[in-house]
Amino acid sequence: MDRFLFLTVDGLARGAVFAAFALALVLIWRGTRIVNFAQGAMAAATTYLGYSVTAASDSYWLGLVAAVFGGLVLGAIVERGLMRFVDVRSPLNAVIVALGLVLVIHSILGIVYGSRYRAMQVPFSRESIEIGGTALLSPYDLFVFGTVLLVMVGLALVFTRTDIGLRMRAAAFAPDMSRLLGVNVGRMLTLSWALAAAVGALAAMLVVPTEFGAHPHSTDLVFVYAFTAAVVGGLDSPAGAVVGGLVVGLVLSYVSGYADGDLSAVAILVLLIGVLLLRPNGLFASTTARQV
């Protein structure tokens, strides 16, 4: 029982990061019908930025802020400079362009930083605190939970309470009508990409230091897990992305805890295939088809 509790809490902690990363994918999908396959590589780049700023300033927090800010800028650049020009009539075009971007980013990172892992610091202890004899969350886990929660609540407030959030949603749902209502749809798309990349950058900064550290490929698996989480949640649903992320975290934790760590990646693929077979639109696909 203790072990189950531990694995559950551990799974949720890991899942929170996947949830944030999946949320970033959903943000872009809703606005553009593009799955941003470059999101992992973009987050790897911003993680290096965070690493470098922390190395230069000896401040974890400055590095974190730099990575998130770098994500904002990188997201805007990728949308303005690249994705805007992709002909979306064939969905494959955006995928190919994104994969090309992945190669470019990986190459640049390899040239600048080399391919060895750079250990990164964490601001809080990763030693689990014992509660009632059971080792549960570490202070760092709590920090991750809190940060992800803050980001989600913040995004939810922006999208439901502010005019700019309303315009972003409208631009995503009905771009042509939104233009007639005075919405600068192009600017809203740029903003969506910037926000998504910033959320992705933050998620990567939370997870990469707990693994081997910064590396051009440090976010590859995170992307696969987050992509699974987003698909499980239905790609269109922010709430689905969050639940999907937590589910993926739990599956990873249970499989590596009860079976074998080597099986965890396989388990995620099984989960992905299972969801696609049983509910191709995801668990949270909205049941109302778009009506004109």
Binding site: D163, L166, R169, A170, F173, M177, S178, L180, V183, V292
Partner: peptide, 25 residues
């Protein structure tokens, strides 16, 4: 102001949100 063919109500948004969008600029 243009009310297009088929009305262009953004069906995912609420009545209030549609109206808010109408004057958000």
């Amino acid at each position: 102001a243009h009310v297009p063919e088929g009305r262009g109500v953004i069906t995912e948004l609420t009545v209030e949100e549609n109206l808010r969008l109408g004057h958000s600029w």
